[in-house]
């Protein structure tokens, strides 16, 4: 069940996941450390939220090496973008309707 009754996506209920989606919506790619810094969360916390979004196929991962260091880049998928936009619209409508 991806959608709640009010048109909001369950996957975006947490502020951290919302933050990840917002950051990836305006950046081609971001790596793990950049996300961690922007969101101000711990490694484990961020990893679990990323895993959840990955499972929904809202974000994609590219793993590569910079020298000997592993480098993981995240990006938003087409599906993720659609879901994020719908979620935003639903949020706006909910605020409008409660005026």
């Amino acid at each position: 069940m991806k959608l709640a009754i009010d048109g909001l996506y369950k996957a975006f209920e947490s502020r951290v996941r919302l933050g990840i989606m917002s950051a990836l919506a305006v950046n081609d790619t971001l790596d793990f450390n950049a996300l961690k810094e922007f969101l101000g969360v711990t490694d484990g916390n961020l990893a679990s939220h990323i895993k959840a979004l990955e499972k929904e196929q809202f974000i994609g991962v590219n793993k590569s090496f910079v020298g000997k260091k592993p480098n993981t880049q995240y990006h938003i998928t087409a599906e993720g973008k659609t879901a994020f936009n719908r979620h935003l619209k639903a949020l706006e409508q909910l605020i409008e309707s409660q005026k």
Binding site: R15, G19, S22, A23, V26, L30, L91, I95
Partner: peptide, 20 residues
């Protein structure tokens, strides 16, 4: 509540701005 939704939107805007 409505406050939560407004908070969500504010978070989205701030994150988009801060990361770009």
């Amino acid at each position: 509540t409505k406050q939560d939704y407004i908070g969500d939107i504010a978070e989205i805007r701030s994150m988009m701005e801060r990361t770009s």
